[in-house]
């Protein structure tokens, strides 16, 4: 089995780097999938490969990497980011202090010319500027060199070339002003220093804004208890939760968080599970009940046995899933990375063409200066930072936002697709209804009494795992009916069950099963029909090949289902009910909640085919189910939504897991998806517009007509602004509120 390795990557400065790092990782033997997240500066690698090999490969490509192991990395990562943030600010300050006075005095015309004494002054400034380039801008130059060696180019390449050209050109003028015409004698030291100041400042601000996007994970990690009280050799002791072993006994006192998943073995309590299930009312739990890590014990003190620890707890799995989803890339993001990978080399070509165009077609004394300045400006303005950040940053915020609403999104593709659905298929039991059916009425024939029929039926059904079967067993228990011995039990998938009781064959199931076995149920038909119209599910009972009666089970509709389905209609979705239940019951439920299309009497194994047939009509289909018998259909659908109450982790089979068990979450998930995709598109549009206007402007296309030329410093500021705008726009998603009517 392949495993996922998470690495933190440093030295990635721009979108182009993502492609280089991914390439470096994929070239390692055993790697199946590599996903580099530029916004988070991490890589998730799947495959049979050691972390050391990956780190070596990444280092060879000119970047640095370290393995991330779990929740505890988060604080380390934060400290490292804080230090980096301060370093960037210091670098920005130093270059600003050198650049700003030069800029101001230069504008005021108070700087000397290039005569003998002036040149000495300029030489000093040139040396000061090279200190700026080394201290504040050194990382751009080393980054550019490293990626150039690997046949890649990125933001560093552009900045290094831009500022390097500015410095070199200025130094040439200082050394020998006679080389260029008098009009063109202008030093660009201040431009180099200020560009570096602005870009460093931009990165620092961007980092700060980025930190806010990972709050969802921090909040989830905050749910984990730090210590647990275990009982070892009869003595209670507090230990770190990492040290808790499987099957150890733990004590939980009132008000404490439960440390790991387990089963209560002594005592009882009410437990606040709202963080997992969204259910605000505390749940009563007693011996034999399951408790989940991260939930809060409200009242009593109890003992429980640890059943899932460390990475296996429900909470850890949720954290892992959100983390993986946040760093995953949707189709749109992969496309952008490809574009960014060829973008920078293309810009290099454009800059050379710009230079040649000025040299060949420019007129006047200043041609050389203009050629150099425009080339420099093209290099500076064309950074694809905004392009690289556009997708991952929005995905991070979107996935995190969804997690806050109890919606766990598996990956970026699911997030991108959810907003494009046009049909939603809903399973009935457990999705539209509570999924806790109970016996509502019974009809008996011949000499059977209700209690006797219930006794026989419950005895047979105790072997079945179907929710309807369970309701019959519970009804018998409620009436204190003792169960009989059953032989040769077998389940007929989607139809019913059969066995032998007291030497007589007994059969419980739907109409089709009775017809198949040639059992006459005409005496029960009228009653069955009337019950199905009330959205009840009648199950026929036959003993000794003769109809004995029917047991009718009703499953209450969730209070918010109707409202949620109305909201689905409001956003233009077609809603289809897909159930194994009989046509009349399904119709009755559909009528009650306002569903337009019903596909009933579908066997579990055929549900996926029904999904496929809707897809064949060209519809993009979302399937909502409770994740157990619906698993194939969930997998077949374009987006599978599993309604799970957290404990039964249906997380594995679906693209999106709805922890809150409400259909409203489906609409919320779709709304978040739409908002995120819209946000990504805005970001990409912004980045695209910025570059398509910025580059020609920088190249000086407006100069011959209107005399407008972009100052390289303005280009530096614009570049910093473009990334900052993307990050701020993505942060806007954090204010998103999907549900209006809760």
């Amino acid at each position: 089995m392949s495993t996922a390795t998470r690495l933190s990557i440093s030295g990635m400065s721009c979108a182009g780097c993502v492609a280089s790092v991914e390439q470096a990782i994929v070239s390692v033997d055993g790697v199946l999938i590599a996903n580099v997240n530029f916004a988070e500066h991490t890589a998730t690698v799947e495959g049979e490969v050691s972390a050391e090999k990956l780190v070596d490969a990444i280092r060879a490509a000119g970047y640095d990497a370290a393995q991330l192991t779990g929740a505890e990395d988060e604080s380390e990562k934060e400290a490292a980011e804080m230090a980096h943030y301060r370093r960037l600010l210091k670098k920005a300050a130093f270059s600003g202090i050198v650049g700003a006075p030069l800029f101001i005095f230069g504008m005021a015309g108070m700087l000397p010319g290039f005569d003998a004494s002036g040149r000495l002054f300029w030489l000093g400034i040139g040396l000061l500027t090279i200190m700026v380039l080394v201290y504040s801008g050194g990382h751009f130059f080393t980054g550019a060199w490293k990626s150039a060696k690997n046949h890649n180019a990125n933001m560093d390449t552009l900045i290094a070339l831009g500022t390097g050209t500015a410095w070199l050109y200025s130094m040439v003028i200082v050394a020998n002003p006679a080389l260029v015409p008098a009009m063109a004698q202008h030093a660009y030291f201040e431009a180099a220093a200020i560009i570096i100041a602005l870009i460093n400042l931009g990165s620092a601000l961007e980092m700060r804004a980025r930190g806010k996007t990972s709050e969802a994970i921090k909040r989830l990690i905050g749910l984990q208890a730090k210590t647990a009280r275990v009982i070892r050799d009869g003595v209670e002791q507090d230990i770190a939760i990492e040290e808790v072993g499987l099957d150890e006994t733990l004590r939980v006192r009132p008000g404490e968080r439960i440390a790991v998943d387990g089963i209560i073995i002594d005592g009882h309590s009410s437990i606040d599970e709202s963080m997992i299930s969204g259910e605000p009312i505390p749940v009563q739990k007693a011996v034999g009940d399951e408790v989940i890590a991260g939930t809060i014990n409200k009242m009593g003190s109890f003992l429980f046995q640890a059943k899932r620890i460390g990475k296996d707890t429900v909470l850890s799995q949720i954290i892992e899933m959100v983390r993986t989803a946040q760093s995953s890339k949707p189709a749109i993001g992969r496309l952008v990375d490809k574009v960014a990978g060829v973008f920078v080399p293309s810009v290099l070509i454009v800059s050379v063409l710009t230079f040649l165009a000025w040299i060949n077609f420019g007129t006047g004394d200043q041609v050389t200066t203009l050629a150099i300045v425009t080339t420099m400006t093209v290099l500076i303005i064309a950074c694809p930072c905004a392009l690289g950040l556009a997708t991952p940053i929005s995905i991070m915020v979107g996935v995190g936002k969804a997690a806050e609403f109890g919606i766990l999104i598996r990956n970026g593709d699911a997030l991108q697709l959810a907003g494009k659905l046009d049909t939603v298929i809903l399973d009935k039991t457990g999705t539209i209804t509570e999924g806790r059916p109970s016996v509502a009425s019974m009809v008996v024939l011949d000499n059977w009494s209700e209690d006797q029929l219930l006794q026989w039926s419950a005895s047979l059904e105790q072997g079945s795992e179907h929710p309807l079967a369970e309701s019959i067993v519970i009804a018998a228990k409620d009436k204190n009916i003792s169960l009989l011995k059953v032989a040769q039990f077998s389940a007929i998938a989607g139809h019913g069950v059969e066995a032998i009781i007291e030497d007589k064959p007994i059969l419980i199931g739907n109409r089709k099963l009775m017809h198949d076995r040639n059992i006459d149920i005409s005496a029960l038909e009228d009653a069955a029909h009337a019950l199905t119209l009330q959205a009840q599910t009648p199950m026929f009972v036959a003993v000794d090949d003769k109809a004995a009666g029917l047991i009718s089970v009703a499953d209450a509709i969730k209070p918010d289902s109707m409202d949620a389905i109305q909201r689905m209609h409001d956003i233009g979705l077609k809603v289809v009910l897909l159930t194994g239940d009989n046509q009349e019951t399904a119709n009755a439920v559909a009528r009650q909640v306002g569903i337009d299309e019903v596909i009933a009497e579908v066997l579990p194994q055929d549900k996926a085919d029904k999904v496929a047939s809707l897809q064949a009509r060209g519809e993009r289909v979302g399937m909502v189910g409770d994740g157990i018998n619906d698993a194939p259909a969930l997998a077949r659908a374009d987006v599978g939504f599993a309604i799970g109450s957290g404990t039964d982790v249906a997380i594995e089979s679906a693209d999106i897991t709805l922890m809150r068990g409400s259909l409203n979450s489906v609409v919320d998930a779709i709304a978040i998806s739409k908002a995120t995709v819209r946000n990504i598109k805005q970001n990409l549009f912004g980045a695209f517009i910025y570059n398509s206007f910025g580059i020609p402007l920088a190249a000086g296309v407006l100069y011959p007509l209107m005399g407008i030329l972009l100052n390289p410093m303005i280009a530096g500021a614009a570049m910093a602004m473009s990334s900052l705008t993307v990050v701020s726009n993505a942060n806007r998603l954090r204010l998103f509120k999907p549900t209006e009517n809760k």
Partner: peptide, 30 residues
């Protein structure tokens, strides 16, 4: 005139180098 010609030739050579380094040579490497 001569100077412009040299600059142009150098520019074209530079473009050719960029194309070779970032595309041709890179895909040769695999």
């Amino acid at each position: 005139m001569m100077q412009t010609l040299i600059i142009n030739l150098a520019g074209v050579a530079l473009i050719a180098f960029i194309v070779w380094w970032f595309w041709v040579f890179k895909s040769d490497k695999g």
